[in-house]
Design a protein around this nucleic acid. Structure first.
Lengths: 273, 273
DNA sequence: AAAATCTGTATTATCTATAATACTAATTTA
DNA sequence: TAAATTAGTATTATAGATAATACAGATTTT
């Protein structure tokens, strides 16, 4: 009854039931995947963890059970618990600032898209406002999940004015980046505004991304306008932080008071190899 | 025993305790903020919601209590529950891409900093690796919390090589952006690499930011290097998504195959007024 | 070998989320 | 006005998460 869950490498569907155990689990998990706890590191003892989190040892135990189930930690009686962060950081998909719009083509990974829903309807309030549409304007609403090497990493919902959206098909959406489709449709893209934030995974998104409800997600909102200032795309994207990072290499240019930062294009901070 | 919690407008501290209530809360919240439920919309009755989610009415009630606490819904006996997606978005602190390094000076808000901890020690593995230091190199480790209008919104931990850090005092850290202190110390900053992701609030950070353990946080890692390629600062920043957004206005420049995106400097997408 | 530390396991008690039910008061609808 | 629907409130019961405690087995340290 938990949707699609028995996948090959679903290391994420083991959330403990209790609320406190959940927090301990999620907190430790993020410390590991986030780099605060590296591979060989040994965790504090269960008793100490219990004190740190202000819960009982049983609760800590549940969280550790879940973590051990995902393979993130290894426990040995007498010795202790050590981090088993499957070594090399797993190379999450990195979206560079400058290659941001072209939506992750050629990333070294083979990314695929799956269309979850597709419909036409009136634009929601906040979309209409952001894009500068009338309240009754019709838009195409599509939700897609993108995967890298068969692991889903992003949940994207796009709103495109119906007049523009008619220029491409449903199949196009599943196979090509929306960005390319827009330009193919003759839209002259001029400006975009992006806002990055964070949120928690709700049931639907969690299911689609193969993660636990309550996991942290990177949230990105994007409004794209053409040369006339008309909104042509509204994107609401949710990304798994363990699979996806937004990278921004910067260099400092100019002299004196005019000295400021600019994106370092053409060079990757970490390398995408 | 929950640390500082009775703040004026902390709407982020309302995650329900129970696991089922959490799911209902997150699901409804996402439907609202995601646009599936717009402003004036009225929700189904509590009894119906209970049936839909397969939980009891008490559980639904908890979720709704939390939603009402955040101001996302409004409940009236006899009438029902309506979505109050308070449109104006509450104007959180917005950090523009181009003004990113100067760390939020002149934001329209009065931001203050509080020094949580301050010490010298050997750099953690991941810091040493990222900055290109030897494993035993000494660094200054400082943790600060920044607040806007007395509401904390960011939790920053910085690592600076001891040799550089000796050039400024502990008091300097509490009053000035680290960035300014570095340049004052004669460091010639040349390059930075930032990585944005998301994570969950652990006990310490949650307490410092006045939010609930398990809340979503925007996570930013920054490595700054000087003209010789030596790492001079490593920053690990956690930001409350309800108080902080990373904004990126972009424009499309160039022609043909060379057409690409560049940050639109000097113009704010939302306005910082 | 002894001591200390750790996970593994078990037991019991308590607290709390959840469920089921009933009722009141406000509001809308017929 | 009467009926229906709704949120607000309260009560009771149950199940499950959590806490507190104790001890055994494994491992490391002294």
């Amino acid at each position: 009854m938990r949707g699609v869950s028995d996948v090959q490498t679903n290391r994420a569907d083991t959330l403990p039931e209790g609320a406190k155990a959940q927090r301990v689990y999620l907190s430790l998990r993020d410390q590991i995947t986030g780099g605060a706890l590296s591979n060989g590191d040994s965790l504090p003892g269960e008793q100490r963890l219990a004190e740190t989190f202000g819960v009982s040892r049983v609760t800590v135990r549940r969280a550790l059970d879940a973590l051990a189930g995902t393979g993130l930690i290894e426990r040995r009686a007498g010795s202790g618990t050590t981090v088993r962060n499957g070594q090399g950081e797993d190379k999450p998909v990195a979206m560079n600032f400058t290659t941001l719009m072209p939506q992750l083509v050629e990333m070294g990974h083979s990314t695929t898209a799956r269309l979850l829903s597709f419909s036409y309807g009136t634009a929601p309030d906040f979309v209409a406002r952001a894009m500068g549409l009338a309240a009754n304007d019709e838009v195409q609403i599509a939700t897609r999940v993108r995967s890298a090497d068969d692991t889903p990493f992003s949940h994207l919902t796009t709103y495109v004015p119906a007049a523009i959206a008619r220029n491409y098909s449903e199949d196009d959406l599943a196979s090509q980046p929306l960005f390319a489709l827009l330009e193919r449709s003759g839209v002259e893209i001029e400006e975009a505004h992006q806002s990055v934030s964070a949120t928690l995974a709700g049931p639907e998104v969690a299911d689609a991304l193969g993660i636990a409800v309550g996991s942290a997600l990177l949230s990105l909102r994007r409004v794209v306008r053409d040369i006339n200032g008309n909104g042509v795309e509204y994107l609401s994207g949710l990304y798994r932080p363990d699979m996806f990072r937004l990278e921004m290499p910067l260099t400092r240019v100019g002299q004196g008071a005019a000295r400021h930062w600019e994106p370092a294009i053409g060079q990757d901070g970490e390398g995408t190899a």
